[in-house]
Computed example of a mutant assay.
Amino acid sequence: MGTEIWTALSGVAVSGLTAFGSVWVAKAGRRTAEQEQRENFSTFTKALNEELARVKADLVEQKEESVRQRRQIGDLDATVNYLRRRVGVLVSYIRKAGMEAPAPEEMPDRVRTYLDHIDV
């Protein structure tokens, strides 16, 4: 009977240690709340950095387009000013020659704000 008790007690002890070890390994394998938050934060940070990179690329593209449009507006302004001066010179020349310049076609309102002060 002595051997059987030792065998039973050792079986109980081994089972207890195995159960304790299983619980400890299961608990150690779980992620802590801090680890979950850290991973969520790094995922959020990564997504935010990608979005910032996209926004920066869009901003650079918009600035380039803005520079191109400003240059084009400046060129168009110079063209309109040249044409205004040229038309003024031609009208003056025609009137000095004793003729009358042909009647202009109706001026659109959008154009009138820029050319209203010119005698055409």
Rank of each mutant, 00 (worst) to 15 (best):
G2A: 02
T3W: 08
T3L: 05
T3P: 00
E4G: 04
E4I: 04
W6M: 10
T7F: 01
T7R: 06
A8Q: 10
A8F: 15
A8M: 05
G11V: 00
V12N: 11
V12T: 12
V12R: 06
V12G: 03
V12M: 09
A13K: 10
S15N: 15
G16C: 05
T18E: 09
T18H: 04
F20M: 00
F20S: 01
V25Q: 11
A28T: 03
G29R: 09
G29T: 07
R30Q: 14
T32C: 01
T32V: 02
A33Q: 13
Q35T: 02
R38H: 09
R38L: 08
E39F: 06
N40H: 12
F41A: 14
T43R: 15
T43Y: 12
F44A: 09
F44T: 11
F44I: 03
L48P: 00
E50D: 14
V55E: 06
D58M: 08
V60C: 06
E61H: 05
E61C: 02
Q62W: 07
Q62H: 06
Q62T: 09
Q62K: 13
Q62L: 14
E64D: 09
E64P: 01
E65H: 05
S66H: 14
S66Q: 15
V67N: 06
R68C: 01
Q69W: 03
R71W: 03
R71G: 06
Q72H: 13
Q72M: 08
I73S: 01
D75Q: 14
D75I: 12
D75R: 09
L76T: 05
L76C: 00
D77V: 11
D77M: 07
D77L: 03
A78V: 06
V80G: 00
N81F: 04
Y82I: 04
L83H: 06
R85Q: 12
V87C: 02
G88P: 00
Y93V: 14
Y93I: 13
I94C: 07
R95P: 00
R95W: 07
K96G: 05
A97I: 01
M99V: 06
M99K: 11
A101E: 04
P102T: 02
P102K: 10
A103N: 07
A103H: 09
E105L: 08
E106S: 13
M107K: 14
M107P: 01
P108G: 04
P108D: 10
D109G: 08
V111E: 13
R112H: 10
R112T: 12
Y114T: 10
L115E: 09
L115Y: 13
D116K: 15
D119E: 15
D119A: 07
V120A: 10
